[in-house]
Design a binder for these strands. Structure first.
Length: 470
DNA sequence: TGTTGGTTCTG
DNA sequence: AGAACCAAC
């Protein structure tokens, strides 16, 4: 039997349900990745995502070649590309793992209908979440809007216990004559910018890279992992791998559970981390049920919010030149490494939305373009959370004080000094109190672009102006 | 997974 | 004076 497996957000061989089933049923198998050129702008890959995808596809090609298979690369309209392949190569069955963004759902539904009408078998599987969004409902059969009850229902859900599985040792043969684009022809690497040049210092994409990171996390970092405690402590750094499915979230969840049983002293830290994985599913859940939140406020009261268009302040924020050390450190970590510590994401987000009164969508787009782990569902949910416009959102009047946040989470100023080199020679106390940093650095470090107290009061006024309750 | 400014308690 | 607690934003 001739079959085709379509790789999407699942660039791995292990614990890949659709791939597993395709391998078991096929005598000859096409493995394909399609760069979808029909994607609307809200879902088009950002620069950092494209960089990561390039690296990840390269690794996947290598892994498949070692097993005597190959990865076919195409770009264009997936409907047309699949139709042509299926017809020309006499494919009987097509397999993929489901994804849940608005464009993916629309595209996949239409492709499935189309192929089925031509008597092609289409088999789709869950592969990118712990539990799929349509399999979780509250008691009144509605989607959850609040995380805590969602979380509780997850802990009781039978699907959470499903076991991961490995790829069979031998793959069906490939179609030797099929033409494929070269990886470079996909045009994923940034042109004329040296922005991504240092990313390889920090990241090794691909399934093997994911497992190396996981092992380091479990054997070392996790012992010191305290959620949000100290910014200079390690985080898991697994988010980009999860985004592209280089490790399955189900596998990760299980590895953690096993470690928790083996080492009970780690169980509370592990539960806290697993809870973060369930936040990731919660984001998919919200996006699946409320697809318009990609561009629209979940709470319509926010449609009247008096956002300010201020290009210079936005630019200062993106460049890490706001004059608030913790904000600037985070924004520069993002620019240099394609990553930012989660706690700092909240601080810089709050600063953009509340201190600068800039629409959360500008921040969302910047993160979307520069984060290697940019995930539509998580990014939208978290920005709406910060802005207060989301379903289960931070109350609008909860305004982070960047000084207090730095004092609490970076008391030794290690994080700030790592990412803001012009402050390295300034004493810690002056940095944490933001005491005349412009003068100390002879003007190298900028003055604060807004005064915290004034910005706070202005934000509270704005919130009152459209009477947003809680 | 907030901050502020007030009151009350404590030494 | 400073911690501890609390309501309001």
């Amino acid at each position: 039997m001739n079959a085709l497996f379509w790789f999407r957000d699942d660039l791995r061989l292990q614990d890949n349900p659709g791939l597993f089933k395709a391998i078991n049923q096929a005598d000859r198998l096409i493995l394909i990745y399609i760069l979808d050129e029909t994607t609307p702008s809200s879902e088009q890959l950002g620069g950092a995502s494209k960089w990561w995808l390039h690296q990840s596809l390269q690794k996947l090609q290598q892994d498949l070649e070692q097993k005597g298979q190959r990865l076919i690369l195409k770009k264009g309209n997936p409907t047309e590309i699949l139709n042509k392949l299926v017809h020309d190569q006499k494919i009987e069955s097509v397999f993929w793992n489901r994804s849940y963004t608005p464009h993916s759902i629309a595209r996949d539904t239409s492709i499935k209908t189309d192929l089925k009408s031509k008597n092609i078998n289409v088999h789709t599987f869950p592969g990118n979440v712990l539990i799929e969004p349509f399999n979780v409902k509250n008691k009144s059969e509605k989607p959850y809007l609040v995380f805590t009850p969602f979380y509780k229902s997850y802990l009781m859900h039978p699907f959470l216990g499903e076991e991961p599985f490995n790829i069979p040792p031998h793959l069906p043969q490939c179609f030797d004559t099929l033409s494929s684009l070269s990886l470079d022809a996909l045009g994923l690497l940034p042109q004329g910018l040296n922005w991504a040049d240092r990313f390889p210092d920090y990241w090794i994409a691909g399934e093997k890279g994911a497992w190396t990171r996981l092992h380091n996390f479990l054997s070392e970092d996790l012992q010191k992992y305290r959620l949000n405690q100290d910014l200079s402590q390690k985080t898991s750094l697994l988010s980009p791998y999860l985004r592209w499915g280089e490790i399955s979230v189900r596998r990760l969840y299980h590895e953690l559970t096993h470690l928790s049983i083996k080492t009970p002293s780690l169980s509370s830290v592990i539960s806290a981390f697993q809870r973060e994985l369930i936040w990731r599913d919660f984001a998919s859940h919200l996006l699946y049920h409320f697809p318009n939140t990609v561009t629209e406020n979940h709470k319509p009261q926010f449609n009247a919010f008096p956002w300010i268009q201020h290009d210079d302040y936005f630019k200062a924020w993106t460049k890490g030149k706001t004059g608030y050390p913790i904000v600037d450190a985070g924004m520069r970590q993002l620019w240099q490494t394609g990553f930012m510590h989660n706690r700092v994401r909240m601080i810089v987000g709050s600063f953009l939305v509340k201190h600068l009164l800039i629409d959360w969508r500008f921040g969302e787009r910047w993160f979307w373009d520069t984060l290697l782990d940019a995930d539509l569902a998580s990014n939208i949910m978290n920005w709406q959370w910060v802005a207060g416009s989301g379903a289960d959102a931070s109350p609008y009047f909860r305004i982070f004080n960047p000084l207090l946040q730095a004092q609490k989470f970076d008391p030794k100023v290690q994080y700030i000094k790592e990412w803001v080199p012009e402050l390295r020679d300034v004493n810690d106390k002056a940095i944490l109190e933001m005491d005349h940093l412009f003068e100390y650095t002879k003007g190298v470090y900028p003055r604060p672009i807004v005064k915290h107290e004034d910005a706070r009061n202005r934000a509270l006024l704005a919130y009152k102006s459209c009477r947003i309750s809680i």
